[in-house]
């Protein structure tokens, strides 16, 4: 990586050589010029909001301040308030638990579909790909609404089918009312929407594995599972890491699906995840200071996850 910035004539830094008169480093203009556009966009769209949020998290910022009243500095009050609030920890714990379940399911099912695609003929593989793409391209709000209809208490497909097949009366049974039911349906929606990406990426990775290696393993007597575990997985290890970290981040910050599903039914207090909790605190109740503090704690957690991901990819590139 670092060699990119230095001149090609200069010897690599690691090689020990007698100290030469230090040449003044020229600022590499072209790379920076090329970077400037993205730095500007990131600075305006991501940098400024993050700084603003950080500032707001140390202020008492309510609706009146939105309209231009000067905001009062309150130090770490917002942070103390949320870190001592059991509701915040409940929401955070719930979000993490949900994330873990969703990530495991997404990875397992996505990988299975990728393996399936490797075995399929051309026509069927195209069919599966189109199906996956459709699920992938569905806007989350639309898909949540449709899943909501499927599980509708009064007129839903699921209750209708259950009534027809069990002979018992399922109309009026609410699937969302019980938090466990709510999160089961939410998991359906999220996992269903996340599988295509995992499946495609895994398929791309798995299909790059040289056939000879697998053949050799087979000749050596490795069964299908052993081949997958001992040969295929090590080949795609980096891809799996990236997918897991990305999925963790996506599933932790999930918002539209939860927000829309809460609108359809269920107990908000028992089903809040961190995304909607921040929204309710800020936009809903107008406590922008507190909401910013929660958001910042959340950003810190996400950064920890991302740093692992970034370091990992850096390492892989160095290899």
């Amino acid at each position: 990586m670092s060699s990119l910035a230095t001149e090609p004539a200069a010897p690599p830094a690691s090689v020990s050589s007698p100290p030469r008169p230090r040449r003044r480093r020229r600022l590499p203009t072209v790379p920076w010029l090329l970077l400037s556009a993205s730095i500007l966009i990131l600075g305006v769209l991501t940098g400024y909001p993050v700084v603003r949020m950080l500032v707001m998290s140390f202020q008492e910022y309510e609706r009146a301040q939105v309209m231009g009243m000067p905001a009062e500095w309150v130090g770490f009050d917002n942070y103390t308030a949320i870190l001592t609030d059991s509701a915040f920890w409940a929401v955070l714990g719930r979000s993490i638990l949900f994330m873990l379940v969703a990530v495991v399911l997404t990875m397992v099912l996505g990988t299975l579909i990728a393996l399936l695609m490797m075995r399929l003929g051309k026509g069927l593989r195209l069919l599966v790909s189109v199906g996956l793409l459709l699920a992938w391209s569905m806007p989350p709000l639309s898909s949540t609404t449709i899943w909501g209809w499927i599980f509708d208490t009064q007129y839903g497909l699921v209750n209708n089918l259950l009534t027809r097949f069990t002979g018992e009366r399922w109309f009026g049974h609410s699937w969302l009312l019980d938090p466990l039911g709510f999160f089961t349906i939410l998991t359906f929606i999220i996992v269903w929407g996340a599988i295509p990406f995992v499946a495609f990426t895994m398929y791309a990775g798995l299909s790059q594995i040289p056939g000879e290696v697998l053949e050799a393993a087979q000749l050596d007597g490795a069964g299908a599972f052993a081949r997958f575990r001992l040969v295929m997985l090590p080949y795609v290890r980096t891809i799996v890491t990236v997918l897991v970290v990305l999925s963790m981040i996506w599933d932790l910050k999930v918002f539209p699906q939860v927000y829309a599903l809460q609108d359809i039914g269920g107990d908000r207090q028992k089903t809040n995840t961190i995304g909607v909790y921040i929204y309710q605190m800020g936009m809903g109740q107008g406590h922008f200071g507190t909401a910013s503090a929660i958001a910042f704690v959340f950003v810190a957690i996400m950064l920890l996850l991302s740093i692992y991901y970034v370091r990992r990819t850096m390492k892989e590139e160095e290899l």
Partner: peptide, 15 residues
């Protein structure tokens, strides 16, 4: 009432 326990007061004309 047979209304859904978590239902909203919307589209009342339907039922």
């Amino acid at each position: 009432s047979n209304a859904p326990a978590d239902g909203q007061e919307t589209d009342l004309q339907v039922p």
